[in-house]
C-alpha cells in the first residue's frame, strides 16, 4: 500500500491540518515508509508463534490486598470544575 499526494491532501483536510506542498511530499514519503515497514513485518511467517501481550518478557507484580490510600477528596475536588455534596458534577448524561 502506498499513498499519493492527493491522499495526503485529503487526510490533511479531514484532520483540519494545513500542509504546504513540500510538507505534503515529506509526509507522503514518511507514511509510505511506515507502510513498507508494516509490509515487511507482515511477510514474516508467524504460524505457530504465540502472540505477545507485552513487549517485555516479564510478568505483572502483585500488590498485597491492603487499604493504603487515605481519603483525599478535598484535595482532588479543589481542582475539579464543579462539585456538590461530595460528587463531581458533569453535564447531564442519560443513556
Amino acid at each position: 500500500m502506498s499513498l499519493t499526494l492527493s491522499d495526503i491532501q485529503r487526510i490533511a483536510h479531514l484532520a483540519r491540518i494545513r500542509v504546504t506542498e513540500a510538507e505534503a511530499e515529506q509526509t507522503r514519503d514518511q507514511l509510505n515508509g511506515i507502510f513498507e515497514l508494516i509490509a515487511q513485518m507482515q511477510a514474516v511467517d508467524t504460524a505457530g508463534v504465540a502472540p505477545m501481550a507485552h513487549a517485555r518478557d516479564v510478568f505483572q507484580r502483585l500488590r498485597a490486598d491492603e487499604v493504603t490510600e487515605p481519603d483525599r477528596r478535598a484535595a482532588y475536588q479543589a481542582v475539579a470544575p464543579q462539585t456538590e455534596a461530595g460528587l463531581y458534577l458533569v453535564p447531564k448524561v442519560i443513556e
Binding site: E84, Y88, V90, K92
Partner: peptide, 10 residues
C-alpha cells in the same frame, strides 16, 4: 442523574 440542576453527579 437527579437533583443537580441539570447536571449529573458522579
Amino acid at each position: 442523574h437527579e437533583d443537580f440542576h441539570g447536571m449529573t453527579g458522579i
